[in-house]
């Protein structure tokens, strides 16, 4: 694997995580529990789609075959998407989305802080912008964990169930593939493994402050980074890619 191939793959992983997260959050549009939350979740979705656009645009430039961000987002088949499985989990109920956002944005907080120091100037620039947005995403999910966890018996139960259900998909975020090892060596990427302890500490603090128990199960399901997805991915893509498949090159 050349440095260029590894960087392309690395950018696709980062971009796909943002793209799929954005899609899932935008499913809340007009379905939020209250108007303010409808706006909040779709605002976060907007931040994610912006990040996906920047990362995929840059991936296209790195690949050098003239693929645009849109082509990368809407024309690839399922096994060529490299997002973590946790991103493609259905939006579920509000507690499920909040738990998902906490587990993902805590990771992104640590990841993008590191990527701000990337030797790749474009990636560092995108990270410099993204980290400011991630801070707002993280505080949003943290504050809702407090409210749901310490709210009613039902809201606590729903949040606990969501954390339990999502837990086995969190480990994948810290895996290191061949392209990530190479990016780490080149001081472009970040050492995911080194983020895990800090992640666990931060997540445990928020959850225990929310009266939520940390799951003890240790089984981890992964595969997304290698293009092996859950059954959810096909459903996402059939909806997301429909227009571009039916009407290639369609623009506003």
């Amino acid at each position: 694997m050349t440095k260029q191939e590894a960087l392309y793959q690395y950018l696709l992983q980062l971009g796909d995580n943002a793209l799929i997260q954005s899609h899932r959050l935008s499913e809340w549009c007009s379905k939020g529990p209250i108007l303010e939350e409808d706006l909040a979740l779709t605002n976060i979705a907007l931040d994610y789609i912006g990040r996906a656009q920047n990362l995929l645009h840059y991936a296209g430039e790195v690949e050098g075959k003239g693929q645009s961000a849109d082509q990368l987002a809407y024309r690839r088949p399922e096994h060529q998407y490299y997002n973590n499985l946790i991103a493609e989990m259905p939006k579920g109920d509000f507690a499920f989305t909040i738990a998902k956002q906490l587990l993902i944005s805590t990771y992104e907080l640590l990841l993008y802080t590191e990527l701000c120091h990337s030797k790749d100037e474009t990636l560092a620039g995108i990270a410099g912008k993204a980290i400011k947005e991630v801070r707002y995403h993280w505080t949003h999910s943290r504050d809702w964990c407090y409210r749901l966890g310490k709210g009613t018996v039902l809201s606590n139960e729903l949040l606990q169930q969501a954390v339990n259900d999502l837990w086995m998909y969190t480990g994948e975020q810290f895996e290191m593939g061949a392209e990530e090892e190479l990016m780490l060596k080149e001081v472009i990427g970040c050492d995911n493994k080194a983020l895990q302890n800090k992640w666990l500490e931060m997540v445990e603090t928020v959850l225990s402050d929310s009266n939520i128990k940390i799951p003890t199960a240790t089984y981890n399901q992964s595969g997304g980074r290698k293009g092996i997805h859950t059954e959810n991915m096909g459903h996402i893509l059939s909806e997301m890619q429909y227009l571009q498949r039916a009407y290639p090159e369609a623009i506003w």
């Binding site: 303010e36 939350e37 706006l39 909040a40 605002n43 707002y136 505080t139």
Partner: peptide, 12 residues
């Protein structure tokens, strides 16, 4: 009221 308002740059 909310950290996320009418546009990406504003809170309510």
């Amino acid at each position: 009221i909310s950290q996320f308002g009418s546009t990406a740059c504003k809170a309510l």
